[in-house]
Amino acid sequence: MTRVRADDYGDKKQSILDRAAVLFARKGFELTTMVDVAAACGTSKSRLYHYFPGKENLLFEIVREHIAGQASELTDIVAMPISAEERFQRYVDAFVRRAAHSRDEHLVLMNDLKFLPAAHRKLVRKLETQLVDLMTGLLKEINPALMLPDKVQTPYAMLLFGMIIWTFTWYQKSGAIAPAELAARISHLFVHGFKDSGFADGCLNNGGR
């Protein structure tokens, strides 16, 4: 007989994912056990297996959910009927806000993707490539001449991604600079440069939506 799922199955599953993400981000995937996750969730190991058959399944769902949500949001932003620079600012703002809000998931994606089976890694990498392609398209619109040589297109997009992604190894949203301001400064720095940017405190150039 098929077991009927409880009405709160989805909520409990999400709670497990949230707590597992905290453990993986702070303790590391290799050192975290399903017993650790069960204890963090206030349940038994056997009960945990009702939701996830193994630790790798937990890891995959954490990173897949995080980057799939990101890809969906950023795709919608790039399709907006506004200028390329405005879409660029909104893209960076959304990326930074999601990474700040879901910092544990972001760190798990950065550090633990290598522990997934090849097929699952391929699915996640496909979504990551989608994000890079979206950014490459925006940069082409902003400065077509600069992005004309094929050989520079991916490097320019990856320079931006590196700036954002690695920031969250040290950045805390509770610090002196809020996510909206951080995003605005990243956008302005990348588009206008450092020496001649003219970016002053209090001048977010509408980047902190």
Score class of each variant (00 low, 15 high):
74 L>Y: 04
172 Q>C: 15
177 I>E: 14
118 A>V: 13
156 Y>E: 10
134 L>M: 15
71 A>F: 15
204 L>H: 08
121 R>Y: 14
92 V>L: 05
154 T>N: 08
146 L>E: 09
137 G>Q: 07
160 L>D: 00
79 A>S: 11
145 A>C: 02
180 A>M: 08
140 K>R: 12
38 A>S: 11
38 A>K: 10
158 M>V: 13
178 A>N: 07
31 L>V: 14
158 M>Y: 13
121 R>T: 14
24 F>P: 04
155 P>Y: 13
196 D>V: 00
101 H>L: 03
176 A>Y: 08
126 K>Q: 12
36 D>L: 00
199 F>H: 02
106 H>L: 06
178 A>K: 10
20 A>W: 02
47 R>T: 10
85 E>K: 11
144 P>Q: 06
116 L>K: 08
167 T>F: 01
29 F>A: 07
17 L>D: 04
31 L>Q: 15
10 G>I: 01
144 P>S: 02
189 L>T: 03
159 L>T: 11
116 L>P: 01
59 L>S: 10
93 D>F: 01
61 E>I: 02
200 A>C: 05
122 K>D: 14
159 L>F: 04
124 V>S: 09
131 L>E: 04
164 I>T: 05
135 M>H: 08
128 E>Y: 15
74 L>A: 00
63 V>R: 03
9 Y>W: 14
3 R>H: 08
86 E>Y: 12
118 A>L: 09
97 R>I: 07
128 E>V: 13
59 L>F: 07
27 K>C: 05
51 Y>S: 12
138 L>I: 10
205 N>Q: 04
172 Q>W: 15
130 Q>L: 15
25 A>D: 02
42 G>T: 07
47 R>L: 06
68 A>Q: 14
88 F>L: 10
77 I>T: 04
94 A>P: 01
91 Y>I: 13
128 E>I: 15
125 R>M: 07
68 A>M: 11
62 I>D: 01
116 L>I: 03
173 K>M: 03
140 K>Q: 15
155 P>Q: 13
200 A>T: 12
15 S>A: 11
175 G>I: 00
191 V>I: 08
112 D>Y: 06
151 K>D: 09
16 I>K: 04
152 V>C: 01
87 R>E: 03
147 M>N: 02
21 A>T: 00
197 S>D: 02
99 A>N: 06
11 D>R: 09
135 M>G: 06
9 Y>Q: 11
